[in-house]
Every structure is written in structure tokens, then in C-alpha cells.
């Protein structure tokens, strides 16, 4: 599928996708940094996952950050349950990169995160970062476990994150943006 430019009238829009397992904090992360009330299509949960949270995102979260008059960064959050994974490709089209959000308090969800990451790796060759939610610092043992279970190369940024804290979310986005910048510069150097 060809990349599609997301251009607004008189300006440019770029997209970052926030993905991760169910209840990892994707909606919260986007709400924390978005300048608009996040369009979130959440519904009550009726199955056994209700124990983790009462509502889940069934289509997408949508946030916006205005960079300047001519440039807007959009954040798209993927639905966190597998039965909605048909949305991933739609949301991912043309993305700059993506954030894989994992929950430090629930390492048992890393297998689910690995599955999502595998799908995204096959879907898009773009940089990504792994944000570890609900920790101030990533414990070395936790980092090892995450890198092992997600099969991460050392070059993949792994960032501690508090999805409710704006500065923390900024750090996650900056980590991704620097990765994209590095990739672009490497491409240019090689051209």
C-alpha cells in the first residue's frame, strides 16, 4: 500500500500510532498530551477482561498536537483487543512511527505486546519505541525481560513512562521522533 500524505488545507499533518496490549494506558497517554478532547470510542466491556477495566477502546483514540501554523501531529490509539486488529493497518497507514506501550505492573501482558509488535513489524518498516507505563525508571531486570520477550534490539529505545504525566509522555514522543530523525539521517548519509 502506498504511503498516503495526510495534508490539511494549507499545512501538513503527520501521524504517530500508539499501540499496546489491552489496558496498557494508550487512551490515557493520548489524552494526557492531546490539545483537544480526545475522540475516544469506548464501550463497556462484557467479557472476562472487565476485571481489568470497565471500558475499552473499540475503534480508535484520536488526539492532536499543533506544532505550528502549518504542521499538526496526530496521535492515533489502536484498540487494545485482538478482535479489533483489523483497525491497525488502517490506523497505521502513513504513520511516522509508533509507540508500543506496555504495562510494567502486568508483565504477563508482554506476550500480547509481542504479538502486536510482530504484526506492526510486518505491517510497517518504521521506527518505534517501547514505553513502559507506570514506572519512573525501568528496572534492569524488567528491561531485560521486556527486551527478551519483545525480541528488541538494543537500539530500540525503551522509555519509562507515566501515561498520566505530560512531561513523561513528551519524553516518549521525543524518543520516537529522534529515532525517526536518526533513520532519516542514516538514509541520507547512505544515499
Amino acid at each position: 500500500m502506498a504511503a498516503r500524505k495526510t495534508r490539511r488545507q494549507g499545512g501538513q499533518a503527520v501521524k504517530i500510532v500508539v499501540t499496546g496490549p489491552f489496558a496498557a494506558g494508550k487512551t490515557t497517554l493520548i489524552r494526557t498530551i492531546s490539545e483537544i478532547t480526545v475522540l475516544s470510542t469506548e464501550r463497556g466491556i462484557t467479557d472476562d477482561t472487565r476485571a481489568r477495566k470497565a471500558e475499552t477502546t473499540v475503534a480508535m483514540d484520536f488526539g492532536r498536537i499543533t506544532i505550528d501554523r502549518d504542521l499538526v501531529l496526530y496521535l492515533f490509539g489502536t484498540p487494545g483487543q485482538e478482535r479489533f486488529d483489523f483497525m491497525w493497518e488502517i490506523l497505521g497507514e502513513g504513520m511516522l512511527g509508533y509507540v508500543l506501550l506496555v504495562d510494567a505492573d502486568r508483565p504477563e501482558t508482554l506476550a500480547e505486546a509481542a504479538g502486536i509488535l510482530d504484526a506492526f513489524r510486518r505491517m510497517a518498516h518504521v521506527p518505534f519505541v517501547v514505553a513502559v507505563n507506570r514506572v519512573a525508571e525501568v528496572d534492569p531486570r524488567l528491561e531485560d525481560r521486556i527486551r527478551a520477550e519483545l525480541d528488541l534490539a538494543p537500539s530500540v529505545p525503551l522509555v519509562a513512562c507515566d501515561a498520566t504525566d505530560k512531561d513523561s509522555v513528551k519524553s516518549v514522543l521525543l524518543a520516537l521522533l529522534y529515532s525517526v530523525l536518526d533513520e532519516i539521517e542514516a538514509t541520507a548519509a547512505n544515499a
Binding site: M1, A2, A3, R4, K5, T6, Q12, V14, I33, I65, T66, I67, D68, L71, L73, E89, G92, E93, G94, M95, L96, G97, R122, M123, A124, H125, V126, K166, K170, L173, L174, L177, Y178, V180, L181, I184, E185, A188
Partner: peptide
């Protein structure tokens, strides 16, 4: 295998610098 999705070719270094400066300034 080829990815289904590739990044917007309009994304360049200048754009990234603007994005980084913008996010830092939030």
C-alpha cells in the same frame, strides 16, 4: 517481506526538527 505500510515520503529532516522542537515546547 515488504511492509504493507511505508512512511510518508514527505517526511524529512526539516520536518522532524520542527516536530521535535514543537513537542519539546509543549
Amino acid at each position: 517481506p515488504d511492509a504493507v505500510i511505508s512512511r510518508d515520503p514527505a517526511v524529512n529532516r526539516s520536518l522532524l526538527l520542527r516536530l521535535i522542537a514543537g513537542v519539546r515546547g509543549l
